[in-house]
Design a binder for these strands. Structure first.
Lengths: 114, 114
DNA sequence: TTTATAATTCTATAAGTATGAAAATATGGA
DNA sequence: TCCATATTTTCATACTTATAGAATTATAAA
């Protein structure tokens, strides 16, 4: 991940409606392809957001790579892209402590930085 | 962490100058109290940001809880607060897959979601 | 005390983002 | 085909955020 896409992802999350949408999609997530996620209408109903506003926000999140979508009949199912999240976290903590603490990359951490 | 502070932290990171500052502070981090971090002037010189602009951004980051500061003579040393980062990540991925994947909380993950 | 250095606050201007009503588009069923 | 449902696009308005020059405050050294 590089600067530009990291900023797009962070900007997409830095808004109350979008953050609520994302967290709802995380809860409804499934690691299985073609499963999990929520229909746009269900998100709008759950969070009480009008269709035009919801669509604007979902588009922002798609462009930022935070969600994917698939059509299911008349509905469009949105799903969180969690690999983007991991990439973002690694970008943020890259080379932490100049590399000596091992916060990013290794499974076995050397020190407790984050 | 709750919604409001998460949005403040995400907004603080969702801006090119501030994101560059944060990453520079992550590299210069030390887990030891009173060590690590960078003087405001050094950040400004490294990133070529005028003092007033830099000060504006550092204030945003302080208010968002992403950085702490301590005075050292005429300089003010800013340091990344990495515990805030961990709190933010946990907030974002809370109850992932309805809780079954164990992405947040447990050290030993059940599945690879993020 | 005077001077130099470091950082912040004030301020005006410029630029970017969110909202939701109305209209348009897409799908599936009668 | 015609109708109902689901979602997106368009658009005007309102709101929020970034920038950097000039003035101010704080610390340290001469």
């Amino acid at each position: 991940m590089e600067m530009k896409s990291a900023i797009e992802a962070l900007s997409a999350l830095a808004q109350e409606t979008r953050l609520s949408i994302f967290r709802a999609l995380v809860r409804a997530h499934s690691p299985k392809e073609g499963e999990g996620g929520l229909a746009a209408g269900d998100i709008g109903a759950a969070l009480d957001v009008p269709p035009a506003t919801l669509s604007f926000h979902l588009k922002e999140m798609s462009h930022a790579g935070l969600v994917t979508s698939r059509r299911d009949g008349r509905s469009i199912i949105y799903k969180a892209d969690l690999s983007a999240m991991r990439g973002l976290t690694e970008f943020l903590l890259e080379d932490c402590c100049g590399g000596v603490c091992g916060t990013v990359g290794t499974r076995q951490r050397k020190k407790e930085c984050a």
